[in-house]
């Protein structure tokens, strides 16, 4: 059965507290961060971008899986912050991790679900036996316009999943998607920062698509909430996934472990995938996982996953999500502005 044969994550070392961001814009109440359920967010170093984050996550995935990178037949990097507008990130990753040149590679973009779209594509290629192993990466260095609500959550991080048939650490039983044309969030060509529909991003966008994706997966797999031990919903902030869980009747404790957003913010294409990685870091073999990723624009990808016995011997090889979450250094807003190119004079 097709499944995850290896996975790895990367979260940059720097953090900024959302209260520090709020203070710059005149809010000293701490209300905004609390309201969003995001207390701090990861900040990429000045020399980090989607290519470097993807390589670090991919190297961790390969080390954990113990596969030969030459067996990777397809590599897709999903992101909305690719370093080049034209020129793939994937080729940089492939060369850096030691892939063969006889492979296929492309960059994906579907807001925050480009990485899970890559998982679906590699699953198809593996199931059709076109490739042995596929590498699907979701990675972002998300930008929020200074002062905008997005600035409190737009973070950096990535996850890499190796999809194959042999010795999976977790099997993927089913995946479904729900897709409509819903412009809740976008960035026009040449613009530095994205724009969004404010409260429009909620009900008609996130909640409708995640909800429909989830219902569709329950229906297709003939399962209910009770059949799953862990739930992961895309985390644009700390509030939405909890509200989604409530709507679907998911007990809070089944959602709790995936909520990395509180400590690292919204890593966009990395968000749900890092949540999944955190569950895989701790789940016992036999555990069942229900994940729905969301991408603005809009669509959702839902997955039903079972943890396999092989996972236990693969732990302790590479840093866990928590290892990365705990490795942190706070920066102030000025340093954050310097790192994130918000100081124009530095080019």
């Amino acid at each position: 059965m097709v499944g995850i044969v290896g996975y790895g994550v990367y979260v940059p070392r720097y953090r900024i507290k959302t209260t520090d961001i709020a203070e710059v814009w005149g809010d000293t109440s701490g209300r905004i961060g609390k309201g969003l359920g995001v207390f701090e967010k990861s900040v990429p170093g000045p020399d980090e971008d989607v290519a470097t984050i993807s390589v670090e996550a991919a190297r961790n995935a390969i080390k954990r899986s113990q596969i030969d990178p030459k067996d990777i037949g397809a590599l897709y990097v999903g992101s909305e912050s690719h370093p080049y507008a034209v020129k793939p990130t994937g080729t940089i990753v492939a060369e850096a991790i030691g892939c063969t040149h006889d492979m296929t590679c492309a960059d994906f973009e579907f807001a925050c679900k480009a990485g899970t779209a890559a998982m679906q594509v590699t699953m198809g290629l593996v199931l059709s036996k076109m490739i042995k192993i596929g590498l699907a990466i979701g990675s972002d260095t998300a930008q929020g316009r200074p002062g905008d609500a997005l600035e409190y959550s737009a973070a950096a991080g990535g996850a890499a999943f190796l999809i194959g048939m042999k010795n999976p650490l977790a099997t993927i039983e089913e995946t479904v998607s729900f897709t409509t044309d819903t412009p809740d969030f976008w960035r026009r060509e040449g613009e530095d920062f994205p724009s969004h529909g404010a409260r429009f991003t909620g009900e008609p966008a996130y909640f409708r698509h995640v909800g429909e994706g989830a219902k569709s997966l329950f229906k297709k797999t003939k399962t209910t909430v009770d059949d799953y031990d862990y739930f992961i919903f895309h985390m644009p902030n700390g509030k939405f996934p909890i509200a989604m869980g409530k709507q679907l009747g998911v007990p809070a404790e089944k959602l709790e472990d995936s909520l990395v957003v509180r400590q690292i913010g919204n890593t966009y294409s990395g968000s749900a995938m890092i949540g999944l990685a955190r569950i895989l870091d701790i789940a016992k073999p036999g555990s069942k996982i229900f994940m729905v990723a969301y991408g603005s624009g809009a669509g959702s990808d839902a997955f039903s996953i079972t943890v396999e016995d092989a996972i236990e011997e693969r732990r302790g090889q590479v840093p866990t999500v928590d290892d990365y979450i705990e490795r942190k250094t706070y920066v102030d807003y000025a340093t954050y502005a310097k790192f994130r190119r918000k100081i124009k004079a530095l080019g």
Partner: peptide
């Protein structure tokens, strides 16, 4: 173009590493 390559970092903690 953007030039990528190696830098070095302190070895990281790995939970469960023996």
């Amino acid at each position: 173009i953007i030039v990528y390559g190696y830098k070095f970092e302190p070895v990281m903690k790995v939970t469960g590493h023996k």
